[in-house]
């Protein structure tokens, strides 16, 4: 049960920015309303961030990861999230065996 100082500072920073987002929208909506393209850009942000994050794994690691990512996307379209994650993980293990 250790707590590293750098870890703790990072976690505190994460907590602060998250709280700022939660309270910020609630407070700011009294003064500003996002409309039109600005609102669309904000709504697209989570999807854009998640996509960028998986790029090194899904597109720049190897064929096993790229194929498994495509299978996961197909599975996620119809199945519950946790099932799709399980299918994708099993696929990557099998594909890595096949490609190694």
């Amino acid at each position: 049960m250790t707590v590293d100082t750098v870890h703790l500072m990072t976690i505190a920073g994460m907590a602060l920015v998250t709280l700022a987002m939660r309270l910020g929208g609630y407070v700011l909506v009294r003064y500003v309303t996002l409309r039109g393209r600005a609102a669309v850009a904000m709504e697209a942000m989570p999807v854009a961030v998640l996509t960028a994050l998986i790029v090194p794994t899904a597109l720049a690691t190897g064929p096993a990861e790229t194929i498994a990512a495509a299978i996961t996307a197909l599975a996620a379209w119809r199945l519950p999230l946790i099932v799709a994650v399980a299918i994708g993980t099993v696929c990557v293990v099998l594909l890595r065996m096949g490609f190694s």
Binding site: E43, A44, P46, L50, T51, L53, I54, A68, L81, G88
Partner: peptide
């Protein structure tokens, strides 16, 4: 395959946030 779980999870989360055409364009550009 635990290192791949992140990618799988994020793909699933993107599905949950899907809003049609604007999502598709955002994903391709990103």
């Amino acid at each position: 395959g635990a290192d791949f779980m992140f990618a799988a999870l994020f793909i699933g989360l993107i599905r949950g946030l899907w809003q049609g055409r604007s999502s598709l364009l955002a994903i391709c550009a990103s």
